[in-house]
Design a protein around this nucleic acid. Structure first.
Length: 425
DNA sequence: CAGCAGGGGGCGC
DNA sequence: CGCCCCCTGCTGG
């Protein structure tokens, strides 16, 4: 360790990344496009959609609009739910009965890993994104342990076993399709080997609407009750005037376990400990619009190469870079390097200096003595600023701070609705 | 000085 | 026990 090169590796980068992504999706933060399917609106991130589908990538490329609304016809919202889960989480559970339709839709939308081998270097001449995913493991679907339904007939779009990867154990069964074979295929061409589905051929018609998605999103918000926070970073987009929201949404995830099933005070990430368990914990689909709770036969589709493999070699454990103040707090917590530790895993009775249970921030690992404090703190990472000034564009992550702001900047309207998150002006 | 973030008390369920 | 709110310290302009 002279003064040579240091390799700093963020051990749980992927896990954390995914988790943050999931939170962003749930809260619709930074979403910049809307998918409309059967009257349902899905705020999405272009980045994610583009990453998972060349098709969407092209749509966005050709759509100058900042926040396009993409209306997909002939796509069932049920399928869209699943596909979004798949794209964001890398995995989704579907009923076997729905599989054919799902796959067909995936093909039409050219969802990587389901319909198109993800990341085909030959085909992507324009660089997509500097995503750090390594090569491109062949797309792969793995079905999952499901006690009742053992033998689904899942056909990966390409043979899983084509590249020697770690999961050789499970791969044996499904490798029957030539991997490259449908690389550039058009949507909706090949049938899924399964018997049904030959009828759905016409690719979904897509219409891109050019107007801003505000009211639509708003509608979505309303019925999905996620928080209406649009973070106006510097962009001056003062579209805050109308984005209405009702109550303390930021607390959505507050109840006990932050951010759903994944990481929280309980300790370790379900899928963190290496081996080859499932990515998201199984019973996970419940929280999205129409997230269908699988019953009976269930297949689990896993987007390989996205979330998996990360427990390999570890050079140096290093907490994510963070604002000053968190740094000094971390230093006494994470002095250890080179283990698979990450900021958060402090279990409850982690004392050392204090006594009670602690609630670690999944982002930086800082611990709090109360979940609500932790949740509040998390907003500093997610950028949420639910409390908006009714007068100017200023917004704050804390009601109290907003209140202070109003008192100082807009004393005349001091008595304005400070009682709730600024839903209106 | 204004804003941000966290600690902690108090209150309601 | 959990949430709301007040207070205070820190930071950047």
């Amino acid at each position: 360790m002279e003064d040579g090169l240091l390799s700093l590796k963020w051990n749980n980068h992927k896990t954390t990344f995914f988790d943050i992504l999931r939170v962003l999706r749930e809260k619709a933060n930074y979403t910049d496009a809307t998918i409309a399917v059967e009257g349902k609106f899905y705020p999405v991130h272009k980045l994610v959609m583009s990453t998972c589908s060349e098709y969407f990538s092209e749509i966005f490329e050709r759509t100058p609009c900042k926040s396009p609304v993409i209306v997909l016809k002939d796509v069932r919202s049920q399928d869209m739910d699943a596909l979004l889960d798949y794209m964001y989480l890398g995995e989704v559970n579907v009923n076997q009965n729905d599989l054919a339709s799902l796959l067909k839709t995936a093909e039409c939308l050219r969802i990587k890993g389901l319909a198109v081998p993800d990341e085909d270097p030959t085909k992507t001449k324009k660089q997509l994104l500097p995503d750090d995913r390594r090569e491109s493991p062949p797309p792969k679907r793995r079905r999952h342990e499901d006690p009742s339904s053992t033998s689904q007939t899942l056909r990966p779009t390409s043979p899983p076993a084509s590249s020697p990867s770690k999961n050789s154990s499970t791969s044996g069964t499904a490798g029957d399709r030539a991997g490259a074979q449908r690389t550039s295929s058009l949507p909706g061409t090949q049938s899924q080997d399964s018997s049904h589905d030959s009828s759905i051929d016409p690719p979904p018609m897509v219409k891109v609407e050019m107007e801003e998605a505000e009211d639509l999103e708003d509608g979505y918000r309303r019925d999905n009750s996620y928080e209406g926070g649009s973070i106006n970073e510097g962009d001056g987009g003062d579209y805050g005037s109308e984005v209405s929201k009702s109550e303390h949404d930021p607390e959505n995830y507050g109840g006990g376990s932050y951010a759903g099933p994944s990481l929280q005070q309980g300790g370790d990430l379900p899928w963190e400990e290496g081996d080859s368990s499932s990515f998201p914990p199984e019973g996970f689909s419940g929280d999205h619009p129409g997230g269908q709770q699988p019953q009976g036969a269930v297949a689990t589709l896993v987007l390989e190469g996205s979330a998996r493999e990360h427990e390999g070699q570890v050079l140096t454990s290093f907490p994510p870079l963070h604002p000053q103040h968190t740094l000094h707090q971390q230093q006494h917590h994470h002095s250890t390097a080179n283990t698979t530790t990450f900021p958060h895993p402090h279990h409850h009775h982690q004392m050392g200096t204090r006594g009670g249970p602690t609630y670690p921030c999944p982002f930086c690992g800082k611990t709090f003595d109360r979940p609500s404090h932790r949740d509040r703190h998390v907003r500093t990472h997610t950028g949420e600023k639910p409390f908006r000034c009714p007068v100017c564009t200023h917004s704050s992550s804390l009601k109290e701070n907003l209140k202070a702001h109003i008192l100082l900047k807009h004393p005349e309207c001091d008595s304005v609705a400070l009682t709730g998150p600024m839903t209106h002006r």
